[in-house]
Amino acid sequence: MRRNVGVARAVRARKERDAYQGKGAELNRANLEHFQTQMAAFKRELENFAVKHKKQINKDPEFRNKFQNMCSKVGVDPLASNKGFWAEVLGVGSFFYELGVQIIHVCLATRDANGGIIQFEDLLQYLRRIRQRAGRETQQISEEDVQRAIASLEPLGNGLRTVKVGPRQMLVSVPMELSPDHTTVLEAAQTHAGVLSIPVVQRDLGWSQERAARVLDALQAQGMTWVDKQTKDGVPAYEFPSIQLNLM
């Protein structure tokens, strides 16, 4: 006699499947609920933490950076928004907004003189001076803060771009596209204290005379470098105000 065949078997199999599915859904629901309570608890803890360490978050760039990373893992961006709970708790919502405005201010104020390219070190130094004047000197700022503020300005269009020049970051505030050749020459300019010439670029980078001249001319057309024609050896020197001068 063969059992488990025919209609009865089919019916039982479906029942089992339904039961499993039901159980599975139940488990899923339980998991989700569990996870949701955990997230809520975590968020609550994060908030408590934020309130407790408000001062340090505002003051200490490294601490702020770690806190920010922790928050972004759970999808909260407390420092970037200036509305809602976080801003009320921390009073820091406008932090990056304010910093962003100050960065734009520095770029505009120095653009005439440096052709729209600025070293991060200088940018930080100018920002600190501005903030000191605004009575914000107790709020230290770091390179990460500046990076984040620049990123938060992105919705306004890509007017500001960071470019890696050798080991250093530079901020470009003009529409010019910097090719790898351009950044290579900018890097060379930094190792030569802001003064280059066509022969120096040829020697340092192993380039042809035409290539060196073309790149230096492009940077000159952009106002990023000026030409000194009074050198002893008669070879024009290309000088970079963004590297040589303190402009703010």
Binding site: Q220, W226, D228, A237, Q244
Partner: peptide, 10 residues
């Protein structure tokens, strides 16, 4: 800035 003493072409 030495180049300040050369009238710029740009």
């Amino acid at each position: 800035f030495k180049a300040f003493y050369t009238l710029q072409d740009n």
